[in-house]
């Protein structure tokens, strides 16, 4: 199969470029990550990318394949148009080849205080939560922080330092939605900002690309609804 892969070596002084590879691989049942590993093992040791779980749960290997942000490890080779173009996730700085600088992305995640805030004394056993209340968290807590959504979002492209992006906002809402959390007001105060939240214009690229089939736009909509309700 034929591949065109984005290469950038920060030590070489050369500009980034696309390099072509011809790999002997049977696409049947194989994923883009299998091809990247095979290229690294047999054709070009210097090709650099992140990977860990190789089953779509750790979020290490978000890349752009033929124009779409995906996890390399769960994207089938079969059916991809050749040459298969693989680039780093858009808009973030490139450290090397397919490895992007995630610092900004993680900073936005930290900014939403992604942890439960509950100042009551802890009970002896678990806090109770009805299955219905717990179901409110489904579609939120499963986020793997791969960055596919945020880096596909035009609002993030325009204001990467100020707009928190879909992944961070999804996690922001994950704690707002948790009946055990007591900091809803504080969280809403932080998000009530022309940039942090309101740069989301409902373009929904995030929903389209999310490899876990989550819906950040819907979560953002629910935050906006809460802000409106609170203002009334």
């Amino acid at each position: 199969m034929r591949f065109r892969i984005y290469r950038y070596d920060p030590e070489s002084g050369n500009k980034p470029s696309m390099r072509d590879y011809e790999l002997d691989i049977d696409p049947q049942g194989r994923k883009v990550l299998d091809a990247l590993i095979a290229i690294k093992d047999t054709l070009d040791e210097s090709l650099s990318f992140r990977r860990s779980c190789r089953e779509g749960v750790c979020g290490s290997d978000g890349v752009n394949v033929n124009g779409a942000n995906v996890l390399a490890c769960i994207t089938p080779l079969e059916g991809l148009k050749e040459p298969i173009e693989i680039r780093p996730l858009p808009r973030l700085g490139v450290i090397r080849d397919l490895i992007v600088d995630m610092a900004q992305f993680y900073q936005h995640y930290r900014a939403v205080k992604p942890y439960l805030i509950n100042l009551d004394p802890e009970p002896e056993n678990e806090r109770l939560q009805s299955p219905e209340d717990r179901a409110e968290l489904d579609g939120l807590w499963e986020c793997i922080l791969c960055g596919c959504c945020t880096t596909s979002c035009p609002s993030f492209w325009w204001n990467p330092d100020k707009f928190l992006g879909p992944a961070a906002l999804l996690q922001g809402y994950r704690f707002i939605a948790d009946t055990r959390d007591q900091a809803t007001d504080e969280r809403l105060d932080f998000l009530e900002d022309p940039y942090r939240l309101f740069r989301c214009h409902g373009i929904m690229n995030c929903v389209e690309v999310c490899p876990k089939n989550l819906n950040p736009t819907q979560a953002i909509g629910k935050i906006k609804t809460l802000l409106v309700k609170r203002a009334l």
Binding site: S52, V57, C58, L145
Partner: peptide
Amino acid sequence: VFPTRSHTVS
């Protein structure tokens, strides 16, 4: 790796 990429996640 960034901590949430650790194998506990699996």
